[in-house]
Write a protein that binds this DNA or RNA. Structure first.
Length: 172
DNA sequence: GCCAGAACTCTGG
DNA sequence: CCAGAGTTCTGGC
């Protein structure tokens, strides 16, 4: 696993890749915190600090997704998670740019009843690849932005940048 | 190891 | 308002 420490308009950005694609994209304020977060997510994995060179272009692709979400193409992803989590993450990737969905809708999309939205929210929270798996496009059924693992203000910023409309239902 | 409780929720009584 | 549904993780015993 190769680790790239970079920056973007939302703060510090850590991107971890394998030969299969992007494993993790973590956003935060402090590089050391991001690094320990990565370690707790993938215990026992060997991490190699890569030169800030971005040989395969994956880091550039992730940054492009953050800065120009409407035009950028996502990099290949290497999804590490349980069966259930991967199902949720795949459903998330089918949400188009500029649109939002709800935890209840996602629950139905992966074959559960709408009342199991809480399990879906947990799977979103466990998502290791910020922005490329667009868990920021999931809002509560009453239109509230709800929570976001990497900060509620980053969620709002990303949605505004994408031009999402359903995010503020009462703002007419 | 096992059990209880919490975590980015929603629905029905 | 309160509880229950469904999954995973964490902390106390």
């Amino acid at each position: 696993m190769h680790v790239y420490m970079s920056g973007c308009s939302l703060g510090r950005l850590l991107v971890a890749t394998t030969s299969d694609g992007v494993v993790a994209a973590l956003i935060g304020d402090d590089a050391a915190v991001l690094r320990s977060d990565l370690h707790s997510r993938f215990p026992g994995t060997v991490m190699v600090d890569a030169e800030p060179h971005d040989t395969n272009g994956h880091v550039r692709a992730v940054v492009a997704l953050i800065e120009q979400p409407t035009t950028a193409a996502p990099p290949p992803l290497d999804l590490r998670g349980t069966e259930f989590q991967r199902a949720v993450w795949l459903a998330l990737q089918r949400v188009p740019v500029g649109r939002t969905t709800t935890y209840a809708d996602l629950a139905i999309a992966v074959g559960l009843s709408s009342s199991s939205s809480r399990a879906v929210a947990l799977a979103c929270a466990a998502n290791p690849i910020a922005v490329a798996i667009p868990c920021h496009r999931v809002v509560r059924s009453d239109g509230d932005l709800s929570g976001y693992r990497w900060g509620i203000d980053r969620k709002r910023t990303l949605l505004e940048r994408e031009g999402a409309r359903a995010a503020q239902p009462s703002l007419f």
